[in-house]
Amino acid sequence: MSISPRVWASRHAQTLVGSLGRLYQQPFSTFMTIAVIGIALAMPAGLHLFVVNGTNLGGRWDSAVDIAVYLKSGTSLTDTETLAGTWRERDDVDDVEVITADQALRDFKAGSGFADAFEGLSANPLPNTIVVRPAVDRLSADQVAQLERALAAAPQVELVQADTQWVQRFFAIVEIVERLVTLATLALGLAVLVIIGNTIRLDIYSRREEIEIAKLIGATDAFIRRPFLYSGAWYGLGGALIALLMISALLVLVQGPVTRLAGLYGSSFEVAGLGAGIALTMLLAGGGLGWLGSWIAAARHIRRLEPS
């Protein structure tokens, strides 16, 4: 059968609106379905935001991951500067700072209150030091450890001191959480497919008489399927909207306390919000899963309903 594109488009538009009307006719059960889909969609998005904010927070503590590299005594200042220069070039390093022995001594005298104890010393006992700031936001825990080993391998180095262990743990945990979020996203996406597929299946069987009549009159499966696909897409879109609302509400609730907490630590940390990207992704995912879920259900069940 050949149909002009205009007729095809207007037919789609009609079913699109028609399917919305049908959902509107059963407001309670439609709302329940959409709410369940909304919760299922909100969970992965919420977890994702949690991880994003967690890593942001981790990134703010980057001064705490500085690696102090103490050079062998007798290493000249030029050698120190050269070494610092080569390290600064490394991809896994964000910043390098040289603290000369003299400077270290001055700082120590000023800061420690033991200035007098050093008066008797003829030579400066402190070595030249290079402070290296790894690019933690880009590095895995393994890579930070690798960087440490690389720094220690330089012949001028006496001792590498870093309290990167907690950072390593932190990022290891973040990695695990990220994987769990991915898994949860897949599982919940599947759940949305099943919920919508099941809703559409019930919808199909509740209209079985209508479907059989349409088949008797010569309707193709594709023609009968179309309104169900739109219903599915509406369910998914509605669910995504509810999920967006839930997450926005959550963010509003959390924003105040977190900002206050960050203020206590002298940090200007702000909770990362949804953003247009995530919101759009959720709407697309909701609509897409709805379409797909209803397509699978419709393809299976409409085929089975034959007039007799």
Partner: peptide, 21 residues
């Protein structure tokens, strides 16, 4: 007949399936 559609809609169904304007 489809009991939730008007007489007009019922009769028009074959034509809509045929893709008429």
């Amino acid at each position: 007949l489809l009991s939730d559609r008007t007489v007009f809609d019922n009769v028009s169904l074959p034509l809509i399936i045929d893709g008429l304007g």
